[in-house]
Every structure is written in structure tokens, then in C-alpha cells.
Design a protein around this nucleic acid. Structure first.
Lengths: 217, 217
DNA sequence: TAGATTGTTAATCGATTAACAATC
DNA sequence: TAGATTGTTAATCGATTAACAATC
């Protein structure tokens, strides 16, 4: 009896946020960080919405899912909202990432400086090409993918990026899951099958381009 | 009177397809092309849905916006559906693209082999760094961004990719619009302001990563 | 205080799913 | 024919917008 009451109240408190809202939070955070760099200390749902092409009502509704972050009449404190969003998105810490695939794209990502300030850092790079294993990229020695499972497991890394050809992406994903990875950013143009509970996001320029040519003539 | 009747019937025939549907079409096409490579000639909304993690009803509904492509009892012809989707998405032709930004990411994209079979080809590469102008990347001589507007205009290129730092992305976008570009794939982590009628798609790994860490702990 | 802007409710809008007659 | 699967309609579900009392 007590148990079920407890569960019920927890269920209320711990309400599930729709994925479409979660998907907008990183965009809010990015724009607010930009405002911070510009020295802006206060903002409103209106102003934020204009920067993002999102309605003010939607921004207020989204943010209100997580607490009352604003003040009537004055709006939101930019640094406070940045701090809250970082905490909500769990990027108030540093996530170590594995990068699998040391081709051109893997190189570019390994050398990209934009991850650190956003809560991410590359910890290991793997490839299956003997010619690449041992090579230094962005300060890391490329490791043999054959050792991926044990090495990733031993460092309890939860986030991975896949930049291998489509034909080997599923096999790589299987290894990553086996190694305990729970979030995968897949640059290979193929759908990955993963157990439920493992998050996958896709980056495929062709998908974006084809979505635009529909409107051209 | 006749005019308004004509406009009305055109409006009916030329119904606007929701953007969320257009966004799924490239994914359908990619999976069907994969099936074609696997030698599969016939498929069903059910089978396609399983590959994409999309409901069969949704796939049938989406496709039916554009015509009756299937047969009761037997499903869809894979090559026929591929042909139809290529035509709908206008990738039954080749789109020339401008690439602006010859850094690591620009290099990787310029050397990527995956565009050609999907209806795209890089035609020109620009950068503002004197050290990069003149260099050969993927068979192209990097051009000075100062000449972008005239050169792009003269070749009537409509599609562009931006791989410059966030701080110069808006200025580049302005030039591209001035040069007649109508679709921009922006890899810089910043929102672009463009006139209505110009399409923009964004690729930002940090957005995707932060959207996943929300679910981790 | 007067003006501005929040958080929230109710209304609207749009997208997804279920179901099934049509038919291959 | 019997089984399978479409295209489409109606029902459901969910997301966005409008509006406003509360209040800084």
C-alpha cells in the first residue's frame, strides 16, 4: 500500500519528457551560450525564439517542464538558464567518447576543437586497417578495433561515434554495445539495429540534401 | 472567373506535402536502394517499416501522397519505387554543389565518394585563407571566397555546403544567397538567417550528442 | 505604479495509428 | 480460390499555439 503510493508519486514527479522537447534543449543551450559570449545577461522567450525561429510560447512551455526558471516581467537570466540546461542535459560533466574509423571524416572529427566546451572529449580512436593502427591522430594512437571491446569496457565509456563505411557499421555497433556503450552517433549511411535502451543518432549529409532538393526545381 | 477556377483546381492537385513526410522520403529511398543492391525486387510496407523502425501504416500513407505505387496482395516493386522516389526528390538528375571551407571537415567532404550515386557532385571549393587558395583538394583547385558570388552565379549552382567556423558562417551564407544558392547544408554550429524560400539544413554533432546524454546517467 | 513577461490552461492544429474494403 | 497487402477513412494521439491571470 505504502509502496504503491510511493511509486505513484514518483511517477508523477518523474514524468517522461517527450523526445521532441529533449531534441530542442541542445539548441536552446547553444544559443544561450552564444548570448553569454556576447555579454547578454538577461533574455526572454521572445528574444530566444527570434534567434532560433521557434515560438516564444513553445520555449516557455518546454522550459517549464523542468522548473520555473524565469521571472515575470524580466525574463530569464542567461547564465542561470545555461547552468540549468547543462545540468538537465548532463553536460555539466565531461563525457569520454570512442571514435571508430580513422578515415578522412574520423581525422576531421578527432581534430575538431568544438567538443570540449560542450561536455565531450575523445578518449580513444580505433580502426581495423593495419596501416592506420599505431598512427597518431589528434594526439591519440589509433588502436586496433580487435581490442575495442576490452579497452572500452575497462574505461567504462558510454558514448561513441562511428565513422566507418556503411558495410562495417553494424558490426562496429555490435562491438560497442558489447563494450557497454549506450549512446552512438553514427556517420555511416545505414540504419543500426541495437538493443532497446541504446540511443542512436544519425548524421548523413545525403539525407539532408535530398530533403532540400524536393523543394528545388 | 475562369482564372479563379483554374487556380482552385491547381491548388487541389498541387497540395502541399508536410515537411515531416518529405523528411522521411530520403530514408525510404536509401533503404530501397540498399535492398536493390541486395537483389531484393519486391517489398512491402511491413518489411520496409521493419528496416526503418517506422510503422507500415505510416509508410503506406506517406507514399500514397504521391501516387498509387503498390499492388494489393503483392506490395511494391523495389526498382519502381526507387525510380519514383528519385523523381519526387529530384535526385533523378545531378546537382552541382559549392563547398565553402577547406579545413579538415571540408577536406573529408570533398573526398567523400558517397554523393555521386545519390544525385550530388561537388563543383567548386572556396576558402578565404590565402594559404589554402590554389591548393588541390579532391581534384579541385581551392578558389578565393572573394570570387564566390560571381563564379557561383555564372554556373547557376543552387546547392551549397558550409564548413567554415561559426563566426564566418553567416557572412558566407549571405554570399551564397546573393549568388543564387537556394539550399544550404550548414556544418557550422550556428543558426543562419536567410530569406524565405532558401532552405537550410544543419549538421552539428554536439546537438545530437547532447540529445543522447539526457538519457544517460 | 505601469509595463513586461512568465507559467499554465484550454483550444487548435497536425501527425500517427487502427481498421478494413478493395483487389491483386 | 485463399492469402496477402494496398490505399484510405475515421479515430486516436500528441504537439503547438493562443490567451491570460499572476506577478516581477
Amino acid at each position: 500500500m505504502y509502496q504503491s503510493t510511493l511509486n505513484w508519486s514518483l511517477a508523477i514527479l518523474d514524468k517522461t519528457i517527450p523526445d521532441v522537447i529533449v531534441g530542442r534543449l541542445p539548441r536552446y543551450l547553444g544559443t544561450l551560450e552564444q548570448m553569454e559570449r556576447e555579454g547578454i545577461n538577461k533574455t526572454s522567450s521572445q528574444e530566444l525564439g527570434e534567434r532560433l525561429n521557434i515560438s516564444a510560447a513553445q520555449i516557455r512551455k518546454d522550459l517549464s517542464q523542468f522548473g520555473e526558471f524565469g521571472k515575470q516581467g524580466t525574463g530569464y537570466s542567461v547564465p542561470f538558464l545555461v547552468e540549468r540546461l547543462r545540468s538537465i542535459l548532463k553536460v555539466d560533466r565531461m563525457w569520454e567518447m570512442v571514435l571508430v574509423g580513422a578515415g578522412d571524416l574520423g581525422h576531421a572529427i578527432a581534430r575538431y576543437q568544438g567538443f570540449t566546451d560542450c561536455g565531450f572529449t575523445i578518449a580513444m580512436i580505433f580502426d581495423n586497417d593495419p596501416a592506420k593502427v599505431g598512427v597518431n591522430i589528434g594526439g591519440f594512437r589509433v588502436e586496433d578495433v580487435a581490442n575495442l571491446v576490452s579497452k572500452v569496457k575497462s574505461r567504462t565509456i558510454q558514448v561513441a561515434m562511428i565513422t566507418v563505411p556503411a558495410s562495417s557499421a553494424q558490426a562496429v555497433a555490435d562491438c560497442l554495445v558489447q563494450a557497454g556503450v549506450r549512446a552512438i552517433l553514427n556517420y555511416a549511411p545505414t540504419v543500426l539495429n541495437v538493443p532497446s535502451g541504446i540511443r542512436v543518432q544519425y548524421i548523413d549529409p545525403v539525407i539532408h540534401l535530398q530533403r532540400m532538393t524536393y523543394y528545388l526545381d
